[in-house]
Amino acid sequence: MTDAESKPQVSETTPEDANKPEGALPPLNIFLHWCKGCNICIAFCPNKVLEPDRDGKPILAHPEKCTQCAICWLHCPDFAITSNYK
């Protein structure tokens, strides 16, 4: 993945996003086909931002609680999480 475009542009949006002001990006991008549902990010997120979907893959359940502390993407064994702000 040496250039940004070829990255899969999959970003998880959640129901609460419906009322989010236009243009506010979700804190994190989660590439679902790289994520293996290992639950590390969900378990170690200090603010419980993420919750597992039926496949065990993270959903941005409380995006507003994300403090961009980096624990999730630093611990992701598959580099399946990036931030829209860092």
């Binding site: 290992c38 580099f79 990036t82």
Partner: peptide, 28 residues
Amino acid sequence: QKSDVTHHYLRAKKKFPNVWCAGCGNGI
């Protein structure tokens, strides 16, 4: 350091995700 810095060091021709079991420390 940007959160997607790892992506700039991966081989484009390799199939991702990597071969390790889900949650394996090797990826970390």
